[in-house]
């Protein structure tokens, strides 16, 4: 792949704190390598901002290898940017051309208030997990593989659902800021496995109640979430969540 350098025009959301109204600010960044990651490009800009004595751009990041779910931001209208199935940290600058204008915004949802600049508070997701996204059985040490037989299809579906890193891109992409893809992945992951069976009904009822309490919108099945999900979680999990919810409520606890 041909290496090249580029000059870019950035339009970045700056917001001092959660009470500030926020505004866009324009920055020119020059001599950006096509082999940098998107976050490294912001690092370069931040180093310049710091050396100029101004406030650097705050953004969330942690592992920078696409598995922790910390990085967020909406790049040119797409959560995690233009590449399919990719987090912002794994988005590389070769996705852009010299002279491109890039608009960078935080994930936007009432349930994800902006902390500063591009950082949003996603603890609503933590509270949803706390409300039921766990198993209470003491699993002890790791057991031998295949000591607990699980149907292949269930194991596969549970695994794909468990791939959710809880980044919140589904909420950011959804026109209703709905968290249904996230909740459905977490519910599916545990509902498909024997370890999740004891709290199966209570879990789905509690997690949906918490989801509603946090102020997320509801699902209108336009499936923008699935398209923007860096882990490509399927919307069929949402159908399973609906099924689990209906079953739990119809059969009682």
């Amino acid at each position: 792949m041909q290496h090249y350098s580029m000059n870019l025009k950035l339009k970045v959301w700056r917001q001092k704190n959660s009470n500030d109204n926020g505004h866009f600010e324009n920055y020119d960044v020059n001599n950006i390598s096509s082999e940098m990651s998107f976050l490294e490009m912001i690092d370069v800009l931040n180093e310049r901002l710091i050396s100029e004595g101004s406030d650097s751009i705050a953004f969330d990041h942690d592992c920078r290898e696409g598995i922790c779910g910390m990085c967020s931001m909406v790049i040119n209208g797409q959560p995690h940017g233009p590449w399919k199935g990719t987090t912002t940290c794994q988005l590389h600058m070769r996705a852009f051309k010299d002279g491109d204008q890039i608009t960078i915004e935080p994930f936007r949802a009432n349930a994800f208030p902006v902390v500063k600049d591009l950082m949003v508070n996603r603890s609503a997701f933590d509270r949803i997990i706390q409300s039921g996204g766990y198993v209470s059985v003491n699993t002890g040490n790791a057991v031998d593989g295949n000591s607990l037989p699980i149907e292949k299809q269930h194991a596969d579906d549970a695994f794909y659902a468990a791939a959710c890193i809880g980044c919140g891109a589904c909420v950011a992409a959804c026109k209703n800021a709905s968290a249904m893809l996230f909740v459905s992945a977490k519910v599916s992951h545990l509902a498909l496995l024997p370890q999740g069976e004891p709290e199966r009904k209570q879990r789905v009822v509690s997690m949906v109640a918490q989801m509603d309490k946090e102020g997320f919108g509801s699902c209108t099945n336009t499936y923008a979430c699935e398209a923007e999900c860096p882990k490509e979680i399927s919307v069929l999990n949402i159908a399973r969540l609906n099924r689990e919810y209906l079953n739990a409520n119809l059969s009682g606890n």
Binding site: K11, G22, F24, V74, N76, G77, Q78, P82, T103, E105, R108, A109, N110, A111, A173, K175, N176, A177, S178, G215, F216, G217, S218, T220, N221, T222, Y223, A224, E226, A227, E228
Partner: peptide, 23 residues
């Protein structure tokens, strides 16, 4: 649903997965 995102995006590039009538 309309009230769940008070601050709108400046740029939206999504909508590829759904037709206008779905929205």
């Amino acid at each position: 649903n309309r009230g769940s995102r008070k601050t709108r995006y400046a740029v939206t590039a999504g909508n590829k997965t759904s037709k206008w009538y779905s929205r």
